[in-house]
């Protein structure tokens, strides 16, 4: 039964990967990669039960966090070209006086 669940997750990952390759915009790709990462977390969790090794759950736990940070970092890189400046601050500064 775990095998069926992991196969279903793998199919979903394939579909997400197809969307990531097809595009058309960068944001589609990032959203697809985000979904792919979420499915990876679930796949690792299922594999932990399939192979009866509970250590894998720790990896899934860490992957859930890394996936989020990775997506946000990729998004920051795409929208502003670097990791450190904040274009939200720039936008707000244009609209109103900074506090």
């Amino acid at each position: 039964m775990f095998i069926a669940a992991s196969l279903a997750i793998l199919i979903t990952m394939g579909l997400a990967l197809a969307r990531a390759l097809a595009g058309p915009t960068t944001y589609d790709r990032i959203a697809a990669v985000n979904m792919f990462g979420t499915k990876t977390v679930l796949l690792i969790a299922v594999l932990a039960f399939l192979s009866d090794r509970n250590d894998l759950l720790d990896i899934a736990l860490v992957y859930a966090l890394i996936n989020f940070i990775g997506v946000v970092a990729a998004l920051k890189l795409v929208t502003q070209g670097d990791f450190y400046s904040s274009d939200r601050d720039k936008r707000e500064a244009e609209k109103e006086e900074p506090e």
Partner: peptide
Amino acid sequence: CLLAGGVLGIIGGIGIHRFPDF
């Protein structure tokens, strides 16, 4: 639960191909 979750995952995967925009 596992099977329903797997099926929902596939449905979501179909959804990201059927819907028209980002």
